[in-house]
Design a binder for these strands. Structure first.
Length: 550
RNA sequence: GGGCCUGUAGCUCAGCCAGGUAGAGCAGUCGGCUCUUAACCGACGGGUCAUGGGUUCGAAUCCCACCAGGCCCGCCA
């Protein structure tokens, strides 16, 4: 990898290095995972990769990045001939640290602070508990994207007892671990407390307890509910003191040692992490390697996605961009593209970016099928590889390709029930040649229409903006309303508008502007004749008449 | 105190992670199409790729330094 200098072909303009896998960052990561495993002398029969899912609030687009990318690594491993599996692991034993915004007000979640999210009632009332609800949203996103994963939950794993042998080791060597945590993070807490949080038998909270001693022969842990500081806010302990069994599933490990345990128990060879977890991962790597004797998984660190408040959405829905929102406007592949095209760097993402990704997907498809030529060849090859991954190794051609914004612009103003016909007709009038029955068109029109209406406004957004009309104009509009009803086509309607304007001594441009205001609440718009014809003359006539009778 | 990200055309950004002649969208100018407008189509983009060094035949891309902005950790999980 570092010998590039010597393998280049001097002067010819193109590096001669062989491509690893398909030439994307995922291939490089997979390659490094494999090389590392070989060096460690571990068996490569099945290389398991893991992604973590948080269940503390409504999942946004960034929460899906880890899991989608982990699936990408699985594919890249398989491209290189190594069998792989992807575990999507939900941390539903974690306590609720803060009540997130945007949840139903039905129950007061404040009272559940520090309770495991899998033991808090579902505020939406439709799942077994809070964590389950969030997990379902996450899975809905993953399923709609189409990635493969084996879903595991912390609460079930603790209940099943699969961590018990590892926990015994950790708790027996807690002194050593406590010192190391101090050394790496400066945190002194675990020099005293064991890195395990029993769920308080009395108050049901996890983080408020402090485990004081562990009896290996009986697997029992003695603890007291002393309280804790979460997000800068102190939660008083209830004072309960008692014992719990390691095997009961009534407690969880501290993050400082929990990942390591999971890795060892599930035989995880690769897991990425967000930069905020850097120090925790460092501790866990050490624990995994030296306490549990399981060489820690290969990691990459990624930057987080930022939410750029969606302009039109910020008021009503908050700045949250959820997978469900994405799918209202775009297909799964576009989201995968966003995750796969690049791993480095912070990205601010909002619904305004959706058209770009949809169009880039079409472009990538054209590159893949050779309809667009990209130089140098190596670059083209890597882009083709990216397309293969984005389509989950099943590249298909989904024609025709219409720029998303154009579709959105046309579709948002299309009549309600005939949007596809309307858009197709407009498209064909401007030089495209598309069919109404194309499933791609149907899907795209629907998505782009949603996007157009939500971000730019649709024709149903009229309201208080009815124009002030002169008497002349009123008369002209009323007459027009009557006359268009017997018009035989779009051209005739268009002519009628001009005629009415001239007949009543109105500037056509003014007349048009008033009509646009009435019909679309804007001063400009699509060519009116065909538009009115498509919407339906009766409907338009009614609208016009009601506007002049106000 | 430690770590990371960003800085590219008037604006928003892509390209950087595997170096090979500076890109897109929007805005702008001109033209085309349309019996309005928008859309659409065509033409027009000399920006020291923040700055200074280095590596290289070749650097926006790699390395070092530096400036500016932002984020994370330094509570807890």
């Amino acid at each position: 990898m570092t010998q590039a200098k010597y393998t280049k072909n001097r002067g010819s303009g193109v590096p001669q290095r062989a491509l690893i896998g398909k030439g994307t960052w995922m291939d490089k990561v997979a390659y490094q995972v494999i090389e590392r495993e070989k060096k460690l002398g571990r068996n490569l029969d099945l290389v398991r990769v893991e992604s973590g899912l948080g269940a503390s609030g409504i999942p946004h687009i960034g929460n899906l990045s880890d899991t989608i990318r982990a699936y990408g690594i699985q594919m890249a491993l398989e491209v290189q001939g190594v069998e792989s599996e992807h575990v999507a692991y939900i941390d539903d034993m974690d306590g609720l640290r803060k009540v997130p915004q945007g949840l139903p007000q039905g129950i007061n979640l404040e009272q559940y602070i520090a309770h495991p999210v899998s033991r808090i009632p579902d505020p939406f009332g439709c799942h077994r508990n809070y964590g389950d609800h969030m997990g379902a949203l996450l899975r809905d996103g993953m399923d709609r994207v189409g990635i493969k994963y084996s879903y595991q939950s912390a609460s079930e794993n603790y209940k099943r007892g699969i961590f018990v042998p590892y926990m015994r080791t950790i708790l027996s060597r807690s002194e050593e671990i406590g010192k190391k945590i101090k050394e790496i993070t400066g945190q002194e807490k675990y020099e005293e407390a064991l890195p395990y949080f029993p769920i308080c038998k009395n108050c049901g909270r996890v983080y408020t307890t402090q485990a004081m001693s562990f009896e290996r022969s009986t697997d029992s842990i003695h603890y007291r509910c002393v309280g804790t500081t979460l997000r800068g806010k102190f939660s008083e302990g209830c004072g309960y003191e008692g014992d719990t069994k390691l095997t009961s599933g009534e407690g969880k490990l501290s993050w400082k040692v929990e990942f390591a345990t999971r890795w060892a128990a599930l035989d995880i060879r690769y897991e990425a992490y967000g930069k905020e977890l850097t120090t925790s991962v460092k501790v866990n790597d050490w624990v995994s390697d030296l306490i549990l004797g399981f060489p820690h998984p290969y990691h990459i660190k990624y930057e987080l996605f930022l939410d750029k408040a969606g302009k039109k959405f910020s008021k009503s829905e908050g700045a949250l961009l959820t997978p469900q929102t994405w799918f209202r406007y775009a297909n799964g592949s576009s989201l995968v593209l966003l995750m796969f095209k690049r791993i480095v760097g912070t990205r601010a993402i909002s619904i305004d970016d959706i058209p770009k990704y949809m169009d880039e997907l079409d472009w990538l498809e054209d590159v893949y099928f050779g309809r667009i030529n990209v130089e140098p060849k190596e670059k083209a090859q890597r882009l083709k590889g990216l397309y293969e991954y984005v389509t989950f190794m099943n590249p298909v051609s989904r024609q025709p390709h219409i720029p998303y914004r154009l579709l959105a612009d046309l579709a948002r103003l299309a009549p309600e029930n005939k949007s596809v016909e309307y858009v197709v007709r407009r498209l064909n009038a401007t030089g495209y040649n598309v069919s109404e029955s194309s499933p791609v068109i149907k899907e795209r029109v629907q998505l782009a229409r949603n996007w157009g209406i939500d971000t730019l406004g649709g024709h149903e957004t009229e309201g208080k903006t009815s124009p002030v009309l002169t008497e002349k104009t009123r008369a002209a509009i009323a007459e027009l309303a009557t006359r268009i009803q017997s018009a035989s086509g779009a051209d005739e309607i268009q002519s009628l508008i001009f005629e009415e304007a001239k007949l009543n001594g109105i500037q056509p441009s003014e007349f048009f502007r008033d009509l646009y205001r009435i019909l679309l609440s804007q001063e400009r718009g699509p060519k009116l004749g065909p538009y009115i014809y498509d919407v339906g003359v009766a409907r338009v006539a009614k609208k016009l008449l009601s506007a002049v009778s106000e």
